[in-house]
Design a binder for these strands. Structure first.
Ligand SMILES: [Mn+2]
Ligand SMILES: [Mn+2]
Ligand SMILES: [Zn+2]
Ligand SMILES: [Zn+2]
Lengths: 141, 141
DNA sequence: TAGCTTAATGCAACTTTATTGCATTTTATT
DNA sequence: AATAAAATGCAATAAAGTTGCATTAAGCTA
């Protein structure tokens, strides 16, 4: 199945209309190990309004297609979700690594994260782990 | 030792001049279990310029007096550091709990966090743990 | 395939958080 | 009291994100 077919199916499954802008966003995010911000997306996507991008990103996030993670500047970055995310629940409790040099945010989803027990009285909905440091590319320079 | 004496000593130790605004910021942050944003600070601190607040907060962060944590909107929030933080190194790798209802960010520094091992090639500088859910106050309503 | 309905987009205006430059004031030291 | 450096205030600017509304396009249905 081609990427395009896959994307179209994904949109249909989530009751989102198949539009050029959405397909382009998906193709820019898929197979990336790092998360992407709206400003970065805007600079490469071509002829799509900036507001439309914000709206596509939040629609995708609500549907469980992408997940949001903040970088070191507090800017939202987005990456494709694990397969088992949906509009009711995200399962992206993997480690996000922020490179202090190149500012990339890596989704290290192959790592298992330990369980965290909260103090009594707190009701946990979602956990997240993040690290700051140097990524392999920046370390080799 | 009174709080004011403590604050003055703290400022002197970090080679920061003793100013009214800085003392007020310290007195607003000390003994709080939750982190505070510049906008929140601004709304209660009285006659201090907003830019001055930003500058005080970043000076304090650099010196290891306070640490920064982003809330669910990507806004920076600040809280007093553990005693062993200094200008070279922060040690605030505790869990930050974001209440999805009241939006407060709790520093749960009494909890021990497990060690996290990164994949080869990544050099770790700082780890952080964050959770989203309902805080005790909001749960009891 | 034409018509209809609803969702998606584009554009302008606006909001919030944060930063920068520069003149003025204040602090700490001598 | 004089001085030098640091801190502040103010105005302007920047960046990320949001809202309202008119227009356009997508997906049905007849
Ligand atoms: Mn991720
Ligand atoms: Mn904290
Ligand atoms: Zn890097
Ligand atoms: Zn709460």
């Amino acid at each position: 199945m081609s990427y395009n077919q896959h994307f179209e199916h994904l949109l249909k499954r989530h009751q989102l209309k198949r539009t050029e802008a959405r397909l382009r966003v998906l193709s820019l995010l898929v197979n990336k190990k790092t998360a992407t911000s709206q400003p970065d997306l805007e600079s490469v996507i071509g002829d799509v309004d900036r507001v439309t991008l914000y709206r596509i990103l939040s629609a995708f996030e609500e549907k469980g297609i992408i997940h949001k993670v903040f970088d070191l500047n507090g800017t939202a970055n987005y990456a494709i979700c694990a397969d088992d995310c949906d509009e009711h629940h995200h399962h992206d409790e993997h480690l996000h690594f922020n490179c202090s040099n190149c500012k990339n945010v890596y989704c290290l989803d192959e790592l298992d994260m330990p369980p965290i027990v909260l103090p009594a009285g707190f009701k946990l909905e979602k956990l997240s782990f993040s690290a700051v440091g140097l990524c392999p590319k920046c370390l080799n320079k």
